[in-house]
């Protein structure tokens, strides 16, 4: 089984509901034109104090959590801003999967589009898992097998759901745009038909801008 099919490692608890993407990747790290260096900004305000010193009590700063690969998080993870930087940053930080009772919609798509595995378990299971992360002497490790869609912690084994499409994307790393471009003839034919019915939407941006520039 290749590494793509199996994620194994330390799972850190982030017991916060509605952890928004502003917190996952704050504004000051969004000024690039590439994806580089975003690991630095991940959960900045939680990891560092106002002077930029690491907060010793924050879970990801504890030495035993070095190399954390999985986050166990609260509901509606990744809500708010659409910034994909949040996903890129988590991945660059070393996170391979987030396990939560629910994910905000845009974050979920962003995660799956980048191969960050978003695993949804029930609220009850997350409470159990969260408890388990805090009980042992050493950090809890989990194993996620994407082939059979199972999460395993020392005390718990749970299956999770993933749409066929997302599972394939995760396992095979599909070039989405390439796949869509295979439908190019369909898209062009659709556009012609669509604009035949609604000519007022054709080139709407360009025509509007030209009109504004004339007046």
């Amino acid at each position: 089984m290749t590494d793509t099919h199996r994620i194994e490692g330390i799972a850190a608890p982030l017991d916060i509901a509605n952890l928004d993407t502003d917190q996952i990747m704050p504004k000051q790290f969004l000024r690039g034109i590439d994806k580089a260096g975003l690991d630095k900004g991940v959960l900045w305000d939680l990891r560092f104090d106002g002077e930029g010193r690491p907060r010793a009590d924050f879970v990801l700063n504890r030495p035993e959590y070095a190399g954390t690969r999985v986050l166990v998080a609260g509901p509606n993870f990744g809500c708010g801003s659409s910034r994909e930087h949040a996903v890129w940053g988590l991945q660059q930080y070393g996170i391979r999967a987030v396990i939560a009772p629910s994910f905000a919609e845009i974050f979920y798509s962003n995660a799956m589009n980048n191969g960050l595995l978003a695993v949804t378990l029930s609220e009850t299971d997350i409470i159990e898992l969260m408890k388990e992360t805090t009980e042992g002497a050493a950090p809890m490790r989990v194993e996620i097998n994407v082939d059979v869609m199972i999460v395993r912690s020392p005390r718990m084994t749970r299956s999770f759901a993933l749409s066929d499409r997302h599972r394939r994307m995760f396992l095979e790393g599909v070039d989405m745009i390439g796949a869509t471009l295979a439908h190019k003839a369909d898209i062009d034919a659709f556009a012609q038909r669509h604009w035949g019915q609604q000519p007022w939407v054709r080139d709407v941006a360009r025509r509007t801008k030209q009109r504004l520039e004339r007046s």
Partner: peptide
């Protein structure tokens, strides 16, 4: 509706989106 940057690229290249 809002989308992430990967999907912005998808729309630029195809004017479509794989939509759930």
């Amino acid at each position: 509706f809002g989308i992430g940057t990967s999907e912005v690229e998808h729309v630029l290249a195809t004017q479509t989106l794989v939509y759930r």
